[in-house]
Simulated scan of single mutants.
Amino acid sequence: MIRPLLHLCAILFVTCASAQEVSLPSKDKLHLYLLVGQSNMAGRGVVEEQDKTPHPRVLMLSKEGKWVPAIDPLHFDKSAAGVGLGKTFAQIVAEANPGVTIGLIPCAVGGSPIDTWKPGVFYPATKSHPWDDMAKRVALALPAGTLKGILWHQGESDSKPELAQAYEAKLHDLVKRLRELVNAPEAPFIAGQMGKFDGVPWTPEAVIVDKAHQDLAKKVPHTAFVSAEGLKHKGDKVHFDSASFRELGKRYAEAYLKMVK
């Protein structure tokens, strides 16, 4: 009986911590990172104990627009939201910058094609406006901190015959528009690779979208690409498993720290 009670107390503690607004540092000491894309940015991994433990200097903007300790799931786009790459990324960046607090702005929307990341576009699957909803959250976040980077993971929904060829131009345009939105023309932008899972061959269209991601750093300043080589899916052949999400977050952090070194 004691162990279930302790477990319940731990859950209640984390829940209260995540719901509790926190005191913020000065604006220059709160470094903000925008998380955008589709479900592999939102995260679909199974939440484990380590994912529910907040870091003292990693916050997230909640669904309600409040700054709270960051625990998974960071996102709220669908009920399937779970472990993603954002928390691991933030913890590593926080440890590399002892004097600052990291503020995550979760805005990814599962299944969203890149065309839905434009002003005024409605995405029926989640009954949302991905760009407009993100813009509102950015407007809430920016007065509190300083935008330091944009993390993007998306492409599966555009790996189709009628969409793939146009993806690169749309991606470059998206980088430009996101930087204009956050008023940071040189903000680091990092794109992650779609899952390259053993036994799950890519379509020719997925290869085209992947090439747009891989070529980004050669064509757009202050951008980087993160490989998903060797990572595993959670059994659905689409989404990374929890361990792979954490590894992907580590790779994003390493790419970011290399960019700003």
Score class of each variant (00 low, 15 high):
139 A>G: 02
203 T>L: 12
177 R>H: 15
132 D>G: 04
19 A>E: 06
170 K>E: 10
103 G>M: 00
248 L>H: 11
189 F>T: 11
42 A>M: 07
189 F>P: 14
65 G>Y: 09
197 F>N: 14
92 I>L: 13
22 V>H: 07
157 S>I: 01
36 V>L: 14
199 G>M: 08
163 L>P: 00
16 C>R: 10
175 V>S: 06
224 A>F: 08
172 H>D: 14
114 I>C: 07
243 A>W: 06
201 P>D: 12
241 D>G: 04
90 A>R: 03
160 K>N: 03
220 V>L: 13
174 L>D: 07
109 V>K: 02
33 Y>C: 13
91 Q>Y: 06
106 P>Y: 00
130 P>M: 05
19 A>T: 05
258 K>Y: 03
106 P>G: 02
127 K>F: 01
121 V>S: 00
113 P>H: 03
135 A>Q: 03
255 A>Q: 10
258 K>E: 15
251 R>M: 01
76 F>T: 08
114 I>Q: 06
69 P>Y: 01
220 V>R: 11
245 F>R: 07
72 D>M: 13
48 E>W: 06
9 C>V: 04
116 T>H: 05
133 D>M: 05
154 Q>E: 05
189 F>I: 10
198 D>L: 14
175 V>M: 06
187 A>M: 02
257 L>Y: 07
192 G>K: 05
258 K>Q: 12
52 K>F: 06
64 E>V: 04
10 A>N: 11
257 L>S: 09
114 I>T: 05
215 D>K: 13
202 W>P: 10
53 T>C: 10
28 D>P: 07
230 G>N: 15
184 A>T: 15
172 H>F: 13
74 L>Q: 11
201 P>R: 11
245 F>A: 11
259 M>T: 04
164 A>P: 12
223 T>E: 08
148 K>V: 00
83 V>F: 07
112 S>I: 00
64 E>T: 09
134 M>E: 03
193 Q>T: 09
28 D>W: 05
92 I>D: 12
102 I>K: 00
164 A>R: 03
119 P>R: 07
146 T>I: 00
229 E>A: 14
38 Q>N: 15
47 V>W: 06
150 I>A: 00
94 A>Y: 02
230 G>L: 15
38 Q>H: 15
158 D>K: 01
99 G>C: 02
167 Y>N: 12
88 T>F: 07
45 G>K: 05
68 V>I: 13
67 W>K: 09
56 P>G: 05
20 Q>M: 09
66 K>R: 15
252 Y>G: 09
219 K>T: 15
130 P>R: 05
68 V>P: 04
51 D>H: 12
34 L>N: 06
27 K>I: 14
75 H>V: 07
141 A>S: 02
38 Q>F: 06
145 G>Q: 01
10 A>C: 12
227 S>W: 09
137 R>T: 01
261 K>H: 13
61 L>E: 13
234 K>D: 08
32 L>S: 02
112 S>E: 00
125 A>D: 14
241 D>R: 02
205 E>G: 09
97 N>Q: 12
189 F>N: 12
27 K>M: 10
182 V>M: 03
27 K>G: 13
237 K>M: 08
178 L>E: 03
186 E>S: 15
106 P>W: 00
45 G>R: 05
188 P>T: 03
241 D>Y: 04
79 S>W: 06
97 N>Y: 04
123 Y>R: 01
161 P>I: 04
